[in-house]
Design a protein around this nucleic acid. Structure first.
Lengths: 249, 249
DNA sequence: GCCTATTTGTTCGTATGTATC
DNA sequence: CGATACATACGAACAAATAGG
């Protein structure tokens, strides 16, 4: 659609059943996907875009709203509208390691422990972990970032006599894989995975630095050790704007 | 936890470190999972629950918020709070057949053809199908229901000289598997799968009989025939309120 | 169309117990 | 020990959406 910062007016097809805002959105979206508008860069102001396309600023706003809904751009009052970084491809399968995935994408990974507590197991988690309902388990709240951008937050439950002190190991090492190594578990695999999606609650949005109501991908999974014994039940919440799951064949 | 519509007060354990709202949430959640509160049925009003448990309405609201966050109930202002129907578990893996999945869940499956057209392949789809960009492909718009409730809508692209007339076969048979059989393809497998999520646009919401802005799971996949040749590239949009994807091990 | 009753959603204020510094 | 912060719980009132007449 061209850079068009030289005062030229990009002509739209008017009166042919294609709404102006949709043409503008499609054009900008193509610019983003083709890399003509770089990730992280600032879009021209709404006023500038309105001038370029010869439309009212309201029409530009409608187009930008459509892009924001698709997660392509993010607008901040007083600052401007910026191109979102492309979604990180997050492979899920029998062997998934957050730290490996992110570093392979050339970003730095870190998991922060938000909180940990010993709690009685609810029915669903108890069944997943193959323990008696009500028996003790360790519940961890974590958040996972790539280059300081939060990608996901998770609630992880581990059976308790076995993993007493796991929270301290995790807090120090910042990675499940490394914390498991401290407990003598060199390898573990994913037993089951379920995927859903829903809007973020206010507190979840705050944790992930998202606008409230933005979409979360909910990934519920159970991991087992080499002997097939369940060692963790996790519910991860991914910011759908920043992550795309890839199922390994 | 008992039906308790007879004016009796269900006693909670107070002052023992277990928050009242959590006890209420756990009790209702158990009632739902045990079927004592049927899917689709209306919960007692907040005021009634507050009376039953002998707590303030705020405490009940806190418990209901926890259930809503887990997707167990949905509250609508002015109507009431209702038990959500469980989401259909939709397995994805190398061999996924919509018709088989739904009938196994005891529901009747049907796919309707909304439209079909021969179009030149865009760059992304051409790469997925391993054909030259711009060469002809058949684009199908379909919608998939279980017991008349729309679960997903899909855009499926097939390479064209090979699958000329596929749209008529699909319209008559209502199933990809059966239509492929007409073209001599007895077996096919999934090559790649990517999963994202975003709010539904107005037209997508209308097709799926959803409120606009409700969440969609976007599943992009490529299927290959027994020889490993790509035979279809599909982008499916699932109503996240009605479906949960299950990754097969 | 209007009106009313019902029900959830939101926002004040107040008080109490429980950690933590 | 006090001071502080936080979660929990209660009370009252009003706003907003829905359903039925």
């Amino acid at each position: 659609m061209g850079a068009g910062s030289d005062g030229t007016v990009t002509v739209l097809a008017r009166g042919e059943g294609l709404a102006a805002w949709r043409q503008i959105a499609d054009g900008l979206s193509a610019d983003i996907e083709a890399g003509r508008l770089a990730a992280g860069s600032q879009l021209p102001t709404e006023a500038a875009l309105a001038a370029r396309f010869g439309v009212n600023r309201h029409t530009v706003r409608r187009a930008l709203a459509a892009l924001a809904e698709r997660g392509l751009v993010r607008a901040t009052q007083g600052r401007g509208t910026f191109v979102e970084t492309p979604r990180l491809a997050y492979p899920i399968g029998r062997r998934t390691r957050f730290s490996e995935i992110v570093s392979k994408a050339g970003r730095e990974a870190w998991g922060d422990l938000l909180g940990a507590a010993a709690v009685p197991a609810d029915a669903a988690t108890a069944e997943a972990l193959a323990i008696a309902p009500g028996s003790a388990m360790l519940e961890l709240q974590t958040i996972h970032r790539a280059d300081d951008t939060p990608l996901s937050t998770a609630r992880t439950c581990l059976p308790l006599p076995r993993f007493d002190g796991f929270d301290r190991a995790y807090a120090a090492l910042g990675s499940l894989t490394r914390a498991y190594a401290e407990f003598g578990i060199a390898d573990y695999t994913r037993l089951s995975t379920r995927i859903g999606a829903r809007p973020a609650a206010a507190d979840e949005a705050a944790r992930l630095d998202l606008a409230p109501g933005r979409v979360l991908i909910v990934l519920t999974s159970v991991n087992v050790d080499a002997a097939g014994v369940p060692i963790q039940a996790t519910r991860s919440l991914f910011a759908a704007d920043r992550v795309e799951l890839v199922v390994e064949g």
